[in-house]
Amino acid sequence: MKEFGGACVLLDRSDINTDEIIPAKYLTENSKLALKPYILEDLKLNSFDPQTSLEGAKVIVTRQNFGCGSSREHAVWVLEVNNINVVIAESFARIFRQNTFNCGMLAIELPKEDIEAIFAIEAEEIKIDLKGQKITALGHGEHSASFELNPFDRELVMAGGWLAYADQKY
């Protein structure tokens, strides 16, 4: 199982799409690692700079419908190869969410109020208690919230992804 939690980056926008996470021109790469420099390259967001803002980040916190658009799992891999194994959002696009769990990573949905609170304290770190299904955000103050993983998604995370799970069961 992967490790979850650590320094976080806040992306204050809904509907961040797969083309912003990893533009299609990089889909010609045949290895996950080759995607590493291009993370969130086309995201236009206030002071966000993909070259510097993601330094040390292990968690992304964002608003609604993260990962909408293309089915490209490259959008998950580019996070993975940059050591970001967790995205926390109000909601996700279906394919992105499934791809995340399929890779044994975490797509955590929290209610709007909790997301607001994490932004309000300008969180710099997120601690994740997978067993207790609880996150604690640390910034100017602290905010804790419970989350609920779909039991099947949880099994995928524990198994290290869908391929390992499916190979055992089907």
């Binding site: 089915s71 799992e73 394919i95 791809n99 890779c103 992804g161 869908w162 190979d167 089907y170």
Partner: peptide, 19 residues
């Protein structure tokens, strides 16, 4: 539409998970 891991399992086992 599905991602590459789902595709791998589809190719290998002919199954896919949905809600």
């Amino acid at each position: 539409g599905i991602g590459t891991t789902d595709l791998e399992v589809g190719i290998l086992k002919g199954v896919c998970a949905f809600r």
